[in-house]
Design a protein around this nucleic acid. Structure first.
Length: 754
DNA sequence: TGCCCGGTCGTTTTT
DNA sequence: CGACCGGGCA
């Protein structure tokens, strides 16, 4: 150690020019190293403005900016996210891709709206052609750098893909609709810039040389566009430093390619590789448990996790009868921890695999009166009233924005209904004018009723009176909108409690605008404010000092740490998620494992894993199967709840893992043995009788002996329904009780087949 | 125009 | 179970 840095850390900080790959395990002080490295570069005489640091999240960018500021007060190093960086480049050169510099950034909801419009135009049914599926497909096509015409052409070579045939119709229209609205979606933000750089070598070289030093965080999660971007900024001046951890790659499902980090040394042959393996975050047993788990991934460069820390508390497994008890139990445990160990609420976090699990936990925490915050739910900028106001700003800033126009033209209600809007759109599209101009000319539009015409004109006139110039700044403009539109009429007929909340949200938005106004006092711009609102996410609004327990998905937890962490629902079908299991793709299971690894390694001192024996899935209680990952790691189990071996014996040993725990692991393994079989069922398996009941529900017959991973052996007493509805009732021997299962998915295994 | 009913569907989601 | 969407009706 020197300067508080380990040898590899110091090497990373001191590395000067040329490509550098930092493989940084969890809690290895990565951010610290990057910020120190930036400071060191400046110390060596590098102009701070020649340094560009790119992260994925605003939160990470903010954090890094903060720490750089602390080391280099006043230095103008640019720390940005991929998307903000691209937005900034694109605003300067929007003309090249056919946009105006005040283009709007469409969010997910806007995209779906565009697709719905396109489907309507094509006279297609939005039920059969699911907008969200189409949107996802378009995103994937785009990210493989395939332009609409190209996609249409490739499709001609392989007829017979009904969905892609549909997408081939929608994609070109979707893209031109964006262009007509002077808008981009999140993908475009990156892809336009990639194209810009590819088509304009001198522009690319200009940016490449402007940023002499490029630092990229979380490189394992870059997608092809981001990869291309990094490459194009490091040709002339290949001083590129990327950091990441292949073991924490959890966004492959979104198009991230882990190969980007694995191939870095191939892409930059003279790259230096530095590994940060020492963990400064977690205590020994937590780290060991995580290490054990991740060691099960085969597609992996072996990496060790080292710590000087003491063993500390072993991870614990808590088992509960059902999800509700689990929620209450966790809340109880949280309270106990606070009372006994002095942990503060804000030092405790609960992670789950899917957002839908937050509800039960929220209820549990509310029941136990424990303060909590959820990093999801209805994000501030997703609320209807906020979206409406933002839409007003969007139309004011970019009158071509059709989606925003259609959102507000009748909000609050002013008698401009669907029919009127359709005629307005048709007329505007024919003449290639924007909807606001069309509204101004309402008198000339056929099909629009006499009553609607003056209303449209009044609306257009009102919008003309709402400009930034008239109000001076964005918050003033927002206030003007609220007043001129009699915005409170929007919620004229909602319950007063909700109305108060909506009112408060509006005030909050105006406050946010006021904050923005202060920041950019000399250069107020609606575009700028809209960009900040478009590029925030739920996690950004979390307050780490709120004095509350934090609930979030494991994905959202990446990059964070908490003294105490609960990972809930360690069940087959949840972690690993059903979809990964069903895909039969070992890569997807490995990603699930990495996800759990990320979750576990957030914990500094205490880690709890929980399972419920019954979990309601879509309203239906289902018996659960323990996650296979439990067998792959190490933990202590709670006394007296679930999975206790019958021959329980006192455990005098003070080693972290008792006989009981070993026994428990053995049992988990056994139960998994039967659980996993249906996934592997083959024709051969059917023939030699090793198949599982789950695959052939029709085989259940009254009197048949079956085995259940938790309830043991029993006999079928009743079979009702058929097909997917089929259910089986089984009387178990001990404890002598009966349970009814969904035949298609229960983990019942026939024993002693006749 | 807006409300209610019924049918459908259901990961994760840095931006 | 619950959110969301579209259709039908007041």
């Amino acid at each position: 150690m020197d300067n508080g840095l380990t040898t590899p850390q110091r090497a990373a900080v001191e590395h000067f020019t040329g490509p550098l790959l930092i493989i940084a395990g969890p809690g290895s002080g990565k951010t610290r190293v990057i910020t120190r490295r930036i400071a060191r570069l400046v110390e060596r005489g590098v102009d701070p403005r020649a340094i560009l640091a790119i992260t994925f999240t605003n939160r990470a960018a903010r954090e890094m900016q903060h720490r750089v500021d602390a080391l280099l007060p006043g230095a103008r190093v640019w720390v940005s996210t991929f998307h903000r960086f691209c937005a900034s480049v694109l605003r300067r050169r929007a003309d090249v891709v056919g946009l105006d510099s005040n283009f709007t950034i469409f969010d997910k909801a806007d995209q779906l709206q565009v697709i719905r419009h396109v489907l309507k135009e094509l006279d297609m049914d939005a039920v059969r052609a699911q907008p969200s599926k189409i949107s996802a497909r378009i995103s994937r096509i785009k990210n493989s750098f395939t332009e609409p015409d190209e996609f249409v052409r490739t499709l001609e070579c392989r007829i017979g893909e009904p969905f892609d045939t549909l997408v081939a119709q929608v994609y070109p229209l979707y893209q031109s609709a964006l262009l007509e609205s002077n808008a981009v979606d999140f993908d475009d933000l990156l892809l336009h810039v990639v194209r810009l750089f590819a088509d304009n070598p001198e522009l690319r070289a200009d940016y490449d040389m402007r940023y002499q030093f490029l630092l990229v965080d979380e490189y394992q999660d870059t997608n092809p566009a981001q990869y291309q971007l990094v490459r194009s900024l490091s040709v002339n001046v290949p001083n590129v430093c990327v950091t990441g951890d292949p073991d924490q790659s959890i966004y492959a499902w979104r198009g991230a390619t882990i190969e980007n980090i694995l191939n870095f040394e191939r892409d930059y042959p003279n790259a230096q590789l530095i590994r940060l393996e020492q963990n400064f975050r977690s205590t020994g047993l937590i780290l060991r448990a995580a290490d054990r788990l991740i060691a099960h991934n085969r597609q992996r460069k072996a990496k060790s996790l080292i710590t000087d820390a003491q063993d500390g508390h072993a991870p614990r497994l808590l088992t509960f009868p059902d999800g509700r008890t689990e929620a209450t139990g966790i809340a109880d445990q949280v309270r106990t921890l606070r009372e006994e160990t002095g942990l503060r609420w804000s030092e405790i976090a609960v992670f789950y695999r899917v957002n839908s699990m937050s509800r039960e936990l929220e209820l549990g925490f509310a029941r136990q009166r424990i303060p909590f915050q959820v990093a999801a739910g209805l994000a501030f900028y997703d609320r209807a009233e906020i979206k409406d106001l933002i839409a007003y700003l969007r139309v004011i800033d970019n009158p071509a924005d059709q989606i925003a126009f259609l959102r507000i033209v009748n909000r609050p209600a002013r008698g401009i209904g669907g029919k009127t809007q359709t005629h307005l759109q048709r007329w505007a599209n024919e003449r290639r004018v924007n909807l606001l101009e069309a509204a101004r000319s309402a008198d000339q539009i056929d099909g629009i009723s006499k009553t609607a015409r003056p209303k449209l004109k009044m609306f257009a006139r009102m919008m003309e009176g709402l400009t930034l110039a008239d109000y001076g700044n964005v918050s003033g403009l927002l206030t003007g909108i609220v007043n001129k539109t009699f915005f409170h009429r929007t919620w004229a007929n909602v319950a007063s409690e909700q109305a108060i909340e909506k009112e408060a949200n509006v005030t909050e938005l105006i406050n946010a605008a006021a904050q923005y106004d202060e920041l950019d006092e000399d250069d107020p711009s609606v575009t700028g404010f809209l960009e900040t609102t478009a590029l925030v996410n739920d996690g950004d609004l979390l307050d780490p000092s709120a004095g509350k327990v934090t609930l979030m998905t494991m994905h959202a937890a990446k990059g964070l740490e908490f003294p105490c962490v609960f990972v809930v629902g360690l069940e087959h079908g949840l972690i690993p998620h059903e979809r990964a299991v069903k895909s039969d793709d070992p890569k997807q299971i490995e990603e699930e494992r990495r996800l759990l690894f990320v979750g576990m390694t957030r914990a500094m001192q205490r880690l709890y894993l929980t399972t419920a024996q019954v979990r309601s899935v879509r309203g239906k209680p289902q018996l659960t199967i323990p996650s296979q990952f439990l067998v792959e790691t190490e933990f202590e189990s709670e006394d007296g709840v679930g999975f206790e071996p019958d021959d329980a014996q006192a455990s005098p040993k003070r080693s972290a893992f008792t006989e009981k725990d070993l026994e428990l692991r053995k049992r988990l393994k056994e139960s998994l043995g039967s659980a996993e079989r249906p996934l592997l069922t083959t024709g051969a398996g059917l023939l030699n009788g090793t198949h599982d009941a789950a695959d052939l529900p029709q085989l259940f017959a009254i009197g048949m002996r079956v085995r259940h991973p938790q309830y043991g052996v029993g006999a079928v007493t009743n079979v009702t329904g058929f097909g997917r509805r089929k259910s089986v009732t089984v009387a178990f021997q001990e404890p002598s009780e009966s349970h009814t299962f969904d035949a298609a998915r229960c983990p019942l295994q026939p024993v002693g087949m006749r």
